[in-house]
């Protein structure tokens, strides 16, 4: 009986791993296709799409597409712009949204619940519906810089950063997480005479690793994939991000090999960021599931 049970266990394990492997393959195939295609000339790339050769490093393999991509467009500049805009936005967003969530969760003030409801309600407003009014607004906003007072934020980094710092989803994530922190910790700190800032900085945020990772990853993806907003507020190449830069490769005679090389290059920062944050992200998802 024990033998049969062990066999069943082994069989289940095999089936489980086969299924997991299949799922992993399904998820990894697009990436594999992208990387392999980036190494092939366009004509071979298109021919190979009809078979499994599309996923294999076979035929005329080389790095010519990468060199061509760099000569067609300022790839490094686009990646730098996106990483800069994304990085600054993520950091500012984590700080300001967590502060807002802290206030919504732990402080008592008039209209708090109503305002939180309004903030969360913004989740159902698609960005496309406010893009034009926002464009009209930022095109007139003042700014004091090295050249003195100026009006209009178009063609700057700040126009790609500031409107995206605060958002309902990030505040919501922090609020949900903060609500589950033991109240006793906060009350004990208050009794000991800690200020709200000290509680935020020394108690709440050190416990907020998982939600910081989740919010950072979600924000990173939103910002790194920005297309419509930079398209309408940036008319100078020097401020363009990667997704608008992708359009450089769609010509009358589309260079598919170069597109795949470009996509491979711009995917690297995303993968790197995800791998760095992966442990905390999974921990956050898992803990959310347990509590759910």
């Amino acid at each position: 009986m024990a033998t049969i049970s062990a066999d069943n266990h082994g069989l289940r394990l095999v089936v489980r791993y086969v299924v997991l492997t299949l799922i992993a393959v399904i998820f990894i195939f697009p990436l594999l296709f992208m990387v392999m295609s980036s190494l092939k000339p366009s004509d071979q790339l298109l021919r190979d799409t009809a078979s499994l050769r599309a996923f294999l490093p076979v035929g005329d393999i080389g790095f010519a597409n990468y060199a061509d991509a760099f000569s067609r467009a300022p790839v490094a500049l686009f990646v730098f712009n996106s990483v800069l805009v994304t990085g600054v936005t993520v950091l500012l967003s984590l700080f300001l949204c967590s502060l807002a969530a802290f206030s919504f969760t732990f402080l008592n003030w008039k209209g708090r619940d109503l305002l939180l409801g309004i903030v969360i309600a913004t989740l159902i407003v698609p960005f496309e519906t406010i893009a034009i009014p926002l464009l009209l607004l930022v095109s007139k906003l003042p700014w004091i810089g090295l050249d003195g007072l100026q009006f209009g934020w178009l063609n700057t980094y700040r126009v790609q950063i500031i409107p995206w710092i605060a958002d309902g989803l990030t505040v919501f994530l922090f609020v949900q997480y903060f609500k589950d922190l033991p109240r006793e910790l906060i009350e004990a700190a208050r009794v000991e005479g800690a200020s709200w800032w000290q509680i935020y900085r020394r108690i709440v945020m050190p416990l907020a690793g998982p939600v910081l990772a989740t919010a950072a990853i979600l924000k990173f993806l939103v910002m790194y994939n920005q297309y419509l907003w930079p398209l309408i507020v940036v008319q100078q190449e020097s401020y363009r991000p990667v997704m608008v830069g992708l359009q450089y490769f769609f010509q009358l005679d589309t260079a598919w090999g170069e597109i795949m090389a470009y996509l491979t290059i711009i995917t690297v920062p995303v993968l790197a960021f995800y791998l760095i944050m992966q442990r905390a992200f999974i921990s956050s998802i898992a803990s959310t599931g347990v509590k759910g």
Binding site: L135, L231, I232, V244, G245, Q247, F250, Q251
Partner: peptide, 13 residues
């Protein structure tokens, strides 16, 4: 500008 998004850029501008 990239051709694919040029018209949108002009209209926005």
């Amino acid at each position: 500008f990239p051709q694919e998004s040029y018209n949108d850029s002009v209209v926005a501008a």
